[in-house]
Nucleic acid binder design. Structure first.
Lengths: 203, 203
DNA sequence: ACCTGAACACCGTTCAAGT
DNA sequence: ACCTGAACACCGTTCAAGT
């Protein structure tokens, strides 16, 4: 089979109909590629192939590969599903927010390293997650100078847990589903917060 | 300046004196390279240049680049400094072991992602760290079915913390060094363990 | 303005050939 | 047994050229 002649792309600006590239389309395609084939499969050339475009076209919308990767992380963060109704108690609130964050990393397991590592993403996280998390910890009675550290504890734990991979072997699918290691960790940390604030104005 | 003629390497087996390559020498050189220039700088070709050797020579000692990286992680783990004298109390023991683990990641910041991620390394960690950590938690009175989860909590936190980067901005170097976020997290988790085991046979 | 193709300086790895 | 060099199939990115 010879090279198909109808696969040759025209050069120059595309006709008005053929929807031009956009950063959005690039990132959406890249995310699908990474979710399906892993981060190693993400190359500018392969991404371009996926888009049906010359590799260099991408550079007119994103400055380089690093921008593609961090754009990916931003896209994932923008899709975070916030809990619809938060519980009344602070412990329930903390769980709800950490769960929302954790779901993010679970939906894109091949991207966790970048998510957890990207400094810009961490800032994004601060704005959307840490706010409510801080509020919950404040209402728990955690002293102001320990709020950041306690919020960080939950996030760091969630990150470390996500990286450590999926749940442990879990040999017994039958019977009561044993409490997951994640949940146990959360319980202990919440007990710790409670102990930290014992005797303070907790509600 | 032309290519220097005396830099030309002989081919074939080296004379007995010129110490041949070994996996050890390759990994030690690779670790120095990564510590100094980052993981991105580690390529088989550059590593070979550093070793004064043809790129392909490396393949006679390590099967591929992945083996080099995981060898690196193993090398780092083998250098873990165990605490010389562990405290009597379980909380002190837990701190000592987590600190030893954390030092590992601090000594090789450009390798943390691999350390935290490498499944073989995690197994190594299980053997050298988790043993004493489990023992400390057992003596704390943690029920047997929660030991793994609690040990994991500390390790996951340490991993997540290491990844989140160095300490926060830390604007105030003067005065009392404020308790680090890491220490606060450890305190809260230990409080949590204590609360978990309240009323049990703790010693 | 946006897209393209050739070109540059790299990669990891296979394989046949040297000693 | 160990080392080497050419070769293959890739990379990210720059730059001049197309429309």
């Amino acid at each position: 089979m010879a090279t198909e002649p109808d696969k040759v792309r025209k050069r120059g600006r595309p006709a008005a109909d053929r929807a031009g590239l956009t950063a959005d389309r690039i990132l959406t395609t890249a995310l699908a590629l990474v979710d399906a084939a892993g981060l190693d499969a993400l190359s500018m050339r392969r991404l371009a192939r996926e888009l049906g475009v010359d590799p260099m076209s991408i550079y007119h919308h994103l400055p380089n590969k690093a921008a593609v990767v961090s754009g990916l992380v931003g896209l994932v963060f923008s899709r975070m599903r916030l809990p619809e109704s938060v519980p009344d108690d602070w412990a329930g609130q903390v769980r709800a927010w950490v769960d929302a964050y954790r779901d993010l990393t679970r939906r894109h397991p091949r991207l966790v390293l970048q998510i957890v590592t990207d400094p810009v993403a961490v800032t994004q996280a601060s704005e959307t997650i840490n706010g409510p998390l801080h509020a919950a910890l404040t209402s728990a009675g955690v002293p102001a100078d320990k709020i950041d550290a306690c919020a960080g504890m939950f996030v760091d734990f969630a990150n470390g847990f996500a990286l450590a991979g999926l749940e442990p072997p879990s040999p017994a699918p039958a019977g009561k589903p044993p409490q997951s290691h994640f949940d146990t960790g959360m319980d202990v940390m919440i007990l710790g917060i409670r102990a930290l604030t014992a005797g303070r104005d907790e509600r």
